[in-house]
Design a protein around this nucleic acid. Structure first.
Length: 506
RNA sequence: GGUCCCAUCGUCUAGUGGUUAGGACAUCGGCCUCUCACGUCGGUAACACGGGUUCAAAUCCCGUUGGGAUCGCCA
């Protein structure tokens, strides 16, 4: 048994949709789990809707997610040159033509000289006959008069598959990896156009099968909306005399119980998650739950996913996409799974957006992240929590300052500035673990307050505001530690000064 | 309407003939506490309905209801 080959075959009509990302993930997971191959193929046959920018966006999104492909384009201009290329359908038109003609010769397909206009006329006639409007005409399909003729006229023609079989009692069936055995009556199928009369691009089902066949794809894993395409594709495989791949249809992502998730429903583009500061594995942890679960665990690294993934745990029912829950998962991922090191690297661009130029390896970066990682649900929020550490002067919450910086706390703030200079250690990479240093400083601070006859409940908020400019931050000792003795003292003295000035103002 | 698929707390789910139907998120309340978080303890909350099969059904079968997909010379 040869190694599985799976593929993700997006159509470049926009940025990568989270539904597409979910599909890509499942294909990628099984390829990695099984030691198989993950192929990326671009289904760019809809010239009117495809854009170069979309191709780039999809590649960027896939790379950001870490879903690397073994075969496929290397970028929008370069086909990559894998063993089964090209990987852009637009570059494979000769192949489709060749296969279509072969099907005509073998009698599985035929040349249909009806024009789309002919079909349209027939459609209207049928609608009139039934007394309904054309857009209400369902369950009707055009039957071509050319179906059983072997004509070769000097006119444009479409190539159609002979699938329409009203008298057939046959059931087309397959064992779906997710859904189990599915049986569909052969006579419910239509004669599908394989290649148009006026356009060399193949239609979806045909291009898909020719490519999956020639690319030796063994597992076709896709959304549930493709179940209905499967029987036609099976017919195509048969006509080609090709072996059937294993099909698997994943449940859909819904907006609510009765609406499919659409572009207007908020953040549905993977790029938006990147911009908002989600972690790739955080997003993936949420997405993987649409179809797969592992007990009550909901936080997974890719490595863990590859280890745990199995088809037997894939579910059949649609799921409602919950943006809030997605955010919560990301928050937990930041707090519990992501390493401080990774977060430090990833938060830098988000600090830069706030004009805080912190370089990787900055001595306080790791400590700073340590103090706030359980307080943020995105990297953007993380950067916000860390903002005051890296600003020359904290941005003071003036409303809070008016309440907290009163003359009666000035002496206390000055005293604590002295304390900071004496008791807060300079930290570097060789320092003791942050938690230990924090505990030690906490004790010292407590003793100091006792000696000064100050109540933490009273002086806590003024100190917090002095150090950070804010009223909600990590604990005092942690902040002093990250800021260091000199900056801590400086900020406390500034606050003491303001407190005295407040007396003059009133 | 035809064809196909699906159905456990608000949401995601565990459950594969015998469970007080479990968890997570959300929600509500307590604790912790220098603030906000985090953490922690506890509460509310579900097998869509109706028939079978069986000593026993959330689990198997049938039907009903509800929901989804699809019915293009789109993908």
């Amino acid at each position: 048994m040869s190694k599985p080959r799976l593929r993700f075959a997006p159509s470049p009509t926009g940025s990568l949709h989270i539904g597409g990302a979910r599909t890509a993930l499942f294909n990628w997971l099984w390829a990695r789990k099984s030691g198989g191959t993950f192929v990326l193929r671009v289904e760019d046959t809809d010239v009117a809707r495809n854009t170069r920018a979309s191709v780039e966006a999809i590649f960027t999104a896939l790379r950001w997610l870490g879903l690397d492909w073994d075969e496929g384009p290397s970028d929008a201009d370069d086909d990559g040159g894998g063993p089964h290329g090209p990987y852009f359908q637009s570059k494979r038109v000769a192949l489709y033509r060749e296969y279509a003609e072969r099907l005509v010769r073998s009698g599985h397909a035929y040349r249909c000289y009806c024009t789309p206009e002919d079909e349209d006329i027939a459609r209207r006639a049928e609608a009139d006959r039934r007394g309904v409007s054309v857009d209400k005409l369902v369950g009707w399909s055009f039957v071509s008069p050319w179906r059983d003729k072997d004509a070769e006229l000097d006119k444009p023609y479409a190539i159609k598959l002979k699938a329409f079989a009203p008298e057939s009692k046959e059931l087309i069936q397959w064992k779906d990896l997710v859904l189990g055995t599915i049986k569909i009556p052969a006579n419910s199928l239509r004669d599908e156009v394989l290649i148009r009369s006026n356009n060399p691009m193949p239609l979806y089902n045909f291009g898909c099968v020719v490519d999956d066949h020639t690319m030796a794809i063994s597992h076709v894993i896709r959304g549930n909306d493709h179940v209905i395409n499967t029987p036609t594709q099976i017919l195509l495989y048969r006509a080609l005399g090709a072996e059937l791949p294993t099909f698997g249809h994943l449940p859909m992502l819904m907006k609510d119980e009765s609406t499919k998730l659409s572009k207007r429903d908020g953040a549905v583009g993977v790029d938006q998650y990147d911009q908002q500061g989600y972690l790739p594995d955080g997003l993936l942890s949420y997405l993987v739950r649409f179809g797969w679960s592992f007990g009550n665990e909901e936080l997974f690294t890719k490595a863990k996913l590859v280890e745990l993934f199995d088809w037997s745990r894939v579910s059949k029912s649609n799921g409602i996409y919950d943006f809030k829950k997605c955010r919560v998962i990301n928050q937990k991922f930041i707090a519990k799974i992501a390493t401080v090191d990774e977060l430090s690297k990833r938060v830098i661009p988000f600090l830069a957006k706030r004009e805080l130029l912190v370089r990787d390896g900055h001595p306080r970066l790791i400590d700073a992240v340590t103090t706030v990682k359980h307080r943020a649900d995105t990297l953007a929020a993380l950067a916000d929590e860390m903002d005051f550490y890296f600003r020359a002067r904290p941005v003071i919450d003036e409303a809070a300052a008016a309440q907290l910086f009163k003359p009666d706390v000035a002496d206390a703030l000055d005293a604590l500035a002295v304390f900071a200079e004496a008791a807060v250690p300079e930290r570097d990479e060789r320092s003791s673990p942050f938690a230990d240093a924090k505990t030690a400083l906490e004790d010292a601070l407590r003793k100091k307050l006792e000696a000064l006859a100050l109540d933490m409940k009273v002086i806590g908020q003024p100190v917090r505001l002095a150090l950070s400019g804010r009223t909600a931050t990590p604990d005092l000792a942690s902040m002093m530690l990250v800021l260091g003795p000199n900056v801590s003292a400086l900020r406390l003295r500034d606050a003491a000064q303001r407190s005295r000035d407040a007396a003059a103002a009133t």
